[in-house]
């Protein structure tokens, strides 16, 4: 700094020896005042800009935080869970349809069993018809024999007549049973055929549904896998951006250090004002400046200032661990 001043104003000895000595100190003080004001203005501009940047970066970090919170871990867990749930629901639907199909098959078997029973019923009705026929023949023979017996066979003829009437009724009943059994058998056959036809259609429909659902689930699964990868990538990028921006917030704190250093420089420059215009000799001016330099160390607030003052190299300042007392 002294060398810099000397380039502008010459050494202290030159200034005091010069005939223009009376003018030089005021120019020196004026320059110090101007530089000090300019440094302070720059410091304020920088502080305003850094506060604005910090506010914006803070807003970005906040929005990224919200975005990262809203998409969980960014692995598409929600979509995958929905897809899995959808698959389970559709499998349940298919299972329900299969259960209906099994019930229909059981019903078809029951109908076949009933058809078999009606066949047996027709056979039984035929047997009843045969018994009625034989009973009729027996009653007819009994009537003939009763006629041969004359008056003594009259009562027997009445019984034979009644037996024939019963035989006819049995034959009619057997015939009706046969007809009804035939109708039932025919109806049940149609029901069984219809049921089998519907069962076949159901089976085909279930197979088709399964195939379509599988295809839909496969497509959905592929899409969700792609989306999940994209979301993971986006989440990763958001996390990295957030870390970068958060890191920038740490770096922006340099402004505080720079501000403190510049404030100290301004303050020291103000203290040095009037040094050159003091009417003392060059030697005493130099002593005064050295005392002020010495005093200046007490106003330092950072290690960099102290190291620079001692002519040592400065090093980058990294965030440190917290010291607890």
């Amino acid at each position: 700094m002294q060398r810099f001043f000397n380039q502008f104003f010459g050494s202290a000895a030159e200034r005091t020896d010069s005939s223009a000595a009376a003018a030089a100190p005021s120019a020196y003080d004026e320059a110090l005042r101007i530089w000090s004001a300019q440094i302070e203005t720059s410091r304020q501009h920088m502080e305003e800009a850094v506060v604005e940047l910090t506010t914006r970066f803070g807003g970005i970090v906040g929005r990224l935080d919200s975005a990262l919170l809203s998409d969980g871990h960014g692995d598409g867990d929600g979509i995958a869970t929905d897809a899995k749930q959808g698959q389970q629901d559709l499998v349940q639907v298919i299972n329900a349809l299969k259960a209906i199909q099994r019930s229909r098959q059981a019903l078809a078997e029951d109908i076949r069993s009933v058809v078999m029973y009606t066949t047996e019923l027709r056979q039984m009705a035929d047997e009843v018809g045969m018994i009625a026929f034989k009973t009729n023949m027996l009653a007819l023979n009994a009537a003939i024999e009763a006629a041969h017996a004359g008056e003594s066979g009259r009562g027997f003829a009445v019984v034979a007549h009644e037996v024939r009437a019963l035989s006819d009724a049995s034959r009619q009943t057997g015939k009706m049973i046969t007809e009804k059994a035939g109708m039932i058998s025919e109806t049940l056959g149609r029901i069984a055929d219809s049921n089998e036809s519907i069962a076949l259609e159901d089976n085909q429909a279930i197979l088709n549904s399964e195939a379509k659902i599988s295809a839909v689930l496969d497509r959905f699964s592929n899409r969700t896998a792609v989306m999940s990868e994209a979301m993971q990538a986006a989440h990763q990028q958001s996390t990295e951006i957030k870390e970068e921006v958060a890191g920038s917030l740490v770096q922006l704190q340099f402004q505080d250090r720079v501000s403190q250093i510049l404030s100290q420089v301004c303050s020291s420059m103000q203290q040095f004002q009037g040094n050159a215009s003091a009417p003392d000799s060059a030697a005493s001016q130099d002593d005064l400046a050295r005392r002020r330099l010495e005093k200046m160390t007490e106003t330092y607030t950072t290690d960099e200032q102290r190291r620079i003052h001692e002519g040592l190299e400065t090093k980058a300042v990294e965030p440190q661990a917290v010291t607890f007392f």
Binding site: L249, E318, P319, F325
Partner: peptide
């Protein structure tokens, strides 16, 4: 009477932990 000492620049998370 201070309980902790944090040097600037600081990591905001370190400050929050403290």
């Amino acid at each position: 009477g201070a309980k902790a000492w944090i040097v600037k620049p600081f990591q905001p998370q370190n400050m929050l932990d403290a």
